[in-house]
Design a protein around this nucleic acid. Structure first.
Lengths: 134, 134
DNA sequence: CATAGAGATTCCCGCTACTGGAAGGTCAAG
DNA sequence: CTTGACCTTCCAGTAGCGGGAATCTCTATG
């Protein structure tokens, strides 16, 4: 199967698939003409990668997950460990974004948003921080 | 004032300050010795940038906010527009992360996490989602 | 005066995970 | 034979810096 078909089937851009080969996540065969020849396993692996990436796993996480996936003797604890670590990262990100959102929403609400120059958003950003005011 | 002092006062790494100069966000003077000489306005501007960045505004957003900040005749609506657009981006990310978190938390919970190889996390990632059964 | 060490400078590479584009080879159809 | 869709490689760029080398400059001390 050529890269175009694989792209269609996995939903991954061809560029991305080539990149995954470059960094050793997948190793398709090569035809006489130099074209990449993907086997079912390759396609399957790429699907796996696509789903893992869409859950926010890093490429490095994916590498680990893929290795475990192909290791019949794995311990599910190892997989769970990667997933839990990622979950914690997500939670951290959520907390950070939540805090940003709260501050920003507050400021946006306080801003008249008209033709006048007075703006609480700018005022807040301009704060001299030697007097931290909340 | 030298870059080290500015770094202390703003909390921004010296590297970051040099980078901000490079991309034209701030323009300190230069002394005879080639050292950057920061005026109060520069320091103030960098503090502004630091706070805006910590709220997640992109460098490009910051450029716009800074221009408005320095424009005495600005309309607060323009500032509010940038902030609102950013707020929406944050909401988008929050939704996305929230969905990831839900899926992942569910999988982590379903995984025994012991020595056995059976793992719902891998099973989910490995799902064949082709309509045609293979 | 010499020297040490702190702080400054520029320069270039590296990171994440791709994306875009140029220059060119290959293949099937008309 | 030509067209156009595919495929190939390679180069460059993205955001927002961080690391580290090689090289000044300043200040303090013996």
């Amino acid at each position: 199967m050529n890269i175009g078909d694989v792209s269609q089937r996995t939903g991954l851009p061809a560029k991305t698939i080539r990149y995954y080969e470059e960094i050793g996540l997948v190793r398709p065969l090569r035809g006489e003409n130099g074209y990449r020849q993907f086997r079912e396993r390759d396609v399957h692996k790429l699907g796996f990668l696509g789903r893992a990436r869409s859950l926010g796993f890093s490429i490095d996480d994916c590498r680990g997950l893929l290795a475990l996936y192909e290791d019949e003797g794995r311990a599910s604890a190892d997989v769970r460990h990667i997933a839990k670590a990622h979950l914690e990262k997500i939670d951290g990100k959520l907390a950070e974004l939540g805090a940003m959102r709260a501050t920003l929403a507050h400021l946006v609400e306080a801003c008249a948003g008209d033709h006048r120059p007075d703006c609480p958003i700018l005022a807040d950003l301009a704060l001299e921080d030697d007097k931290a005011e909340t």
